[in-house]
Design a protein around this nucleic acid. Structure first.
Length: 333
RNA sequence: CGCGGCGUGGAGCAGCCCGGUUAGCUCGCCAGGCUCAUAACCUGGAGGUCAUAGGUUCAAAUCCUAUCGCCGCAA
């Protein structure tokens, strides 16, 4: 069987490697065009070895059209005369015309338990919404975003991973399911399960603004945001100090602290009297569901603008907090 | 030449704009003390070519130039 793979990033790479090691003939790899400057100094996105490099090692031709749906892109694909298309996190929606080229159709490796979380950012969205489990679904590609019938599915629990960590766990599951599905397809026609339209939810791309922390949200929600926004766009906030320019800081790690604090505190206020141990940085957040008491988030790791990533203890030594200091979403002008 | 921040004892920072006393703070480390005890407290100590190279000056961590390195933004 002649296979063409399309994908990008760490989520797609295990599948590419599996296909290269597998029994079928990988005739070409499509990946996104090289982004300018990305390789210069570590991207904000997760980039493993790179699809291009992995494919090149095995002498598999690589194609990077700006759009597969353009006449050029379609021509590239047609020129390979594939039997099957395997897509994982490619980032482009394939046109009907492109999907019609492979004789056996196309399958997609998707990082959620479909029909939930259709779209570009299923892993981060699942964490953000407090799901307790997620998984990988293999679907037959059809018109419509992630709407095809399901051919295989496997779930795993969500613990306290960041989006990047969770994706790294899902990727190998996806590659395994993809190979199994291909093997079944070769054995004969297979039928999948239709997605229940009533259960469909969308997982749109994340934006940079979604990383801005609103300290008036409940503690659990703030912590989920911190995990979901990694490695991109990262959760961030500003430290406001009287007479000083607001300091932007990326929050890398934060946990809910199971104690309530004075309800009169403004959300985002560091609770200094609790900082007995120099490594502890507690922040007051919104009131929990009922009652007036406020929840607390403990920041463990962060990175002030222009500095490297550091522990809360290190941060507090260099930026001792005083009365009137507060974390908040307000941007410097 | 895409934009910006930063390089100060082991860690994190201040000092730099407005050059000039022993380069400071919060920690860590070593020794001793107090204590039933401690991550607490007290005393003493080691540890710094202020990234590097030039320049300006009577005098440079501080001003100017270049180089190297780290980081953020550009999703």
């Amino acid at each position: 069987m002649r296979i063409v793979m399309m994908g990008t990033g760490t989520f797609a790479e295990p599948t590419l490697e599996a296909l290269l090691a597998g029994p079928d003939f990988l005739v070409g790899v499509f990946t996104q065009p090289d982004r300018e400057g990305v390789q210069k100094r570590g991207s904000t996105r997760q980039v493993g070895r790179g699809m291009k490099e992995i494919a090149a090692e095995k002498g598999v031709p690589v194609f990077q059209p700006a759009s597969v749906n353009s006449p050029e892109g379609v021509a590239m694909l047609r020129g390979l005369s594939p039997d099957l298309l395997v897509v994982a996190a490619y980032g482009q929606i394939l046109s009907k015309e492109a999907l019609a080229i492979p004789t056996q159709g196309a399958i997609n490796v998707h990082g959620s338990l479909l029909p939930k979380y259709r779209g570009a950012a299923p892993v981060a969205r699942a964490i953000l919404n407090g799901e307790t489990e997620t998984g990988v679904t293999i679907i037959r590609m059809s018109a419509g975003l992630d709407a095809g019938e399901m051919l295989a599915k496997e779930s795993i629990p969500i613990a306290d991973e960041t989006a990047g960590e969770l994706e790294a766990k899902l990727a190998p599951i996806g590659s395994r399911l993809a190979l199994q599905t291909i093997a079944r397809m070769k054995a004969g026609p297979i039928t999948g399960e239709k997605q229940d339209l009533a259960l469909v939810t969308k997982a749109p791309k994340l934006t940079k603004e979604m990383g801005l922390i609103d300290w008036s949200k409940p503690a659990e929600q703030v912590c989920r945001q911190v995990r979901a926004m990694q490695p991109w766009p990262t959760a961030y906030t500003y430290l406001h100090r009287p007479g000083k320019v607001p300091l932007r800081a990326i929050i890398y790690s934060a946990v809910e602290y199971p104690v309530r604090c004075d309800p009169r505190l403004q959300p985002g206020t560091p609770i200094r009297e609790w900082h007995r141990d120099p490594g502890e940085l507690f922040i007051a957040v919104a009131e929990e569901l009922p009652g007036e008491e406020r929840g607390v988030v403990q920041i463990l790791e962060l990175q002030p603008a222009g500095k490297k990533r550091m522990t809360a203890e290190e941060f507090l030594r260099g930026y001792p907090l005083k009365d009137g200091d507060r974390f908040g979403p307000e941007t410097p002008i």
